[in-house]
Amino acid sequence: MSSEAMPLSPASVPAGEIQRYTFQERLCHWFSALTYVYCLLTGLAFYTPYLFWIAVLLGSGATSRFWHPIVGLGFLVSILWMHSLWRRDMTISGKDKQWLDQVNNYATNRDNLVPPQDRFNAGQKLFYWVMFWGTILLLISGLLMWFPEYISFRVAWIRSLAVLTHECAALITIGAFIIHVYMGLFLVPGSGRAMVRGHVPAAWARVHHRLWYDRVAGKPSST
């Protein structure tokens, strides 16, 4: 769905609000979140003995081992789906460089010093690309870890390299994921609700995504 069509969805959007995420975008996001969190929890269980109880809680170690790679493929599907929806919105542009120069001010909540942003700010875009490339790495290494007995012993280093890659890629996405959840649920009130209900108050859009607001709702025809 193109972003131009988005704000014109009056049936579900109350007065004073504008649509931020379509139903399909929200579905994709939560499918992605669910599959990621499952892989994260079971992965952490294999990662350290101190968290192995998670695997037990989620059925058993063997159950978690069985489902982790399969749900991982589901996560891959979600990322490809998301890519088809958001690829254009996530493209990094010159404006993002200006924002990144001001990232200190953004992090310390001096938002008036930060240049206005389009539908996604540069931080959100970076998060997206970290997850995208992280997923590709997790996929390649994960496939090798799934069936190590098919990797000839002559090149056994590929087996251990795969585990190491998988773990590093997972750790990088986990770092990004911690910040993502923190911002979505705590730091930026209203953004979690936007991903659930699909719409945001116009003021929210003006404060956080001025350029996007101007583009989709700034015209007098909307709210």
């Binding site: 008036n112 770092g175 009130p189 956080h208």
Partner: peptide, 24 residues
Amino acid sequence: AMTAGVLGVVAHYIRYGPKEAVEK
């Protein structure tokens, strides 16, 4: 790193708090 990450965002919230959507 994971522990530091979680503690870090908690510390950030305590220090800076949420970004309210108030128009200056």
